[in-house]
Amino acid sequence: MKWVDRVGRHLKLRDLHILLAVVRLGSMAKAAAELAISQPAVSKAIADMEHMFGLRLLDRSRSGIEPTAYGRALVTRGHAIFDELKHGVEELAFLSDPTVGDLRIGSTESVAAGFLPAVIKRFSLEQPRVRLDVAQAVMSTLHYRELRERSIDLLIGRIPVPFDEDDLEAAVVYNDDTVVIAGRQSKWAKSRKLMLTDLAGERWILPPPDTMQGSLAPKLFRDSGSEMPHAPITTLSIHLCLRLVAGGQFVTMLPASVLGFGNRDESLKVLPINIPVRRRPVAIVTLKNRTRSPAAKLFIECVHRTAREDAKAPRSARSEK
C-alpha cells in the first residue's frame, strides 16, 4: 500500500500523457515535436516514471521505441484514465448545456445501409446539437479493435452467438434474418418458391470469407444441400452490391434489415427462399466498466426506441424485407 500511495502522490498526468505519445509515435523526438516540448523534457518525464515505478517502461532499439510488458500495461490503463477524464469534461459541459456533445459510433456496413439511418434521422431531430462521428467497422479477425482502443464510444452490428468477449458487453437491439436478393428484371423475380440449389449456377456477390457474414455463406449453402457457388465478386460495400444486383446480372445474400427501416428499393426483389439459419442478433457493443457519456446514453435509448417502434409498425407500413 505504501508503494501505491507513493505512486498516487507523485504520478503526473502530464508525464503519463507524454508516455502515451511516445508509445504511439514510437519516438521521443516525434513525441516532443507533437507535444511542442523539448526532447530532454520527454526523456526526463519517462525517466522519472521509470524511477518512481522501479520498472523499465520502454525498450530502445535502432528500429524505434517499444513498450515493455510493464509499459504496455500502463499505456492500456492510461488510455482508460484519459478517456474517463474526457467523459468527465463532457458530462460537465452536458450539465451546463444538455443539448450539446460528441459521439463516435462504429457501424457495420449492413447496419449503416439499413437501420442506422433511421436512428440518426430520429436522433438528429431530438438532439440537433450533438455531433455524430460515424466510422465503418468490419467484423473480422480484428473485430472490436476500435472499441478496445477507445477510438469509438460504441459499435452497432451483428454479433456472434454466443458472444464470448470478457471485456465487452452486448445489448441486443433486434434479430435479423438473411435473405436472397435479385433485381426486379431478373428471371427469378416472379418465382413464388425457390431453393438455393435453383440458383447454384447464378453469378453471386458475397462478402469476403474472413468476415462474419462471409464465414456464414458456406454453411448456408451446405445446409441447403447446395455446393458453394462461384462468386465473381466479393465486397463489403452494400451500395456496390445493391447497384450491381439491381441490374439483373447478379444475386446476393444480405441481412433483411438492409431493405427494411424505410429503405424500400423498387429495383430489388427479395426472393422466396427459406434460408435455414437462425436469426442473427444485432447489438450495441460497448466496453465493460466504461463510463458512458450523456450523448451515448441518449443515443443508445434512441436506438432501442427506433427498433421497438419499427417492430410495432403494421407490416404494410414497413419496407419489403
Rank of each mutant, 00 (worst) to 15 (best):
A41E: 11
A41N: 09
V42Q: 02
V42C: 02
S43D: 09
S43I: 07
S43N: 07
S43F: 06
K44R: 13
A45I: 00
A45T: 02
A45R: 00
I46A: 03
A47M: 11
A47Y: 12
A47V: 11
D48H: 08
D48G: 05
M49D: 00
M49C: 04
E50D: 09
E50Q: 05
E50I: 01
M52F: 13
F53E: 01
G54W: 03
G54M: 07
G54P: 02
L55G: 03
L55V: 08
L55Q: 05
L55C: 04
L55T: 00
R56L: 10
R56I: 12
L57Y: 03
L58I: 12
L58C: 08
L58Q: 04
L58S: 05
D59G: 09
D59M: 09
D59H: 09
R60N: 15
R60C: 13
S61K: 06
S61H: 04
S61M: 08
R62G: 15
R62M: 13
S63Y: 07
S63V: 08
S63G: 10
G64C: 09
G64R: 08
G64A: 10
I65W: 00
I65T: 02
E66P: 00
T68S: 12
A69Y: 09
A69S: 11
Y70P: 01
Y70F: 15
Y70T: 11
Y70V: 11
G71V: 04
G71Y: 01
R72K: 14
A73M: 14
A73N: 07
A73T: 12
L74A: 05
L74P: 00
V75P: 01
V75R: 01
V75N: 04
V75W: 06
T76R: 13
T76C: 12
T76E: 15
R77G: 13
R77V: 11
G78D: 12
G78F: 04
H79F: 15
A80F: 11
A80N: 11
A80K: 11
I81N: 03
I81G: 01
F82T: 04
F82W: 05
D83Y: 13
D83M: 06
D83C: 10
E84V: 15
E84Q: 12
E84D: 15
E84L: 14
L85F: 11
L85H: 11
H87L: 11
H87M: 12
G88K: 13
G88P: 03
E90V: 02
E91W: 07
E91R: 05
L92D: 10
L92K: 06
L92E: 13
L92F: 10
L92C: 10
L92Q: 10
A93P: 00
A93N: 05
F94M: 07
F94Q: 01
F94P: 00
F94N: 04
L95V: 14
L95A: 12
S96F: 06
S96P: 00
S96L: 09
S96N: 08
D97R: 04
D97V: 00
D97K: 00
P98S: 07
T99P: 01
T99N: 09
V100N: 06
G101P: 01
G101D: 02
G101S: 06
D102G: 04
D102L: 09
D102Q: 12
L103E: 01
L103H: 01
R104V: 13
R104K: 15
I105F: 02
I105Q: 03
G106H: 02
G106C: 05
G106E: 03
S107H: 02
S107Y: 00
S107T: 08
T108V: 11
S110F: 01
S110I: 01
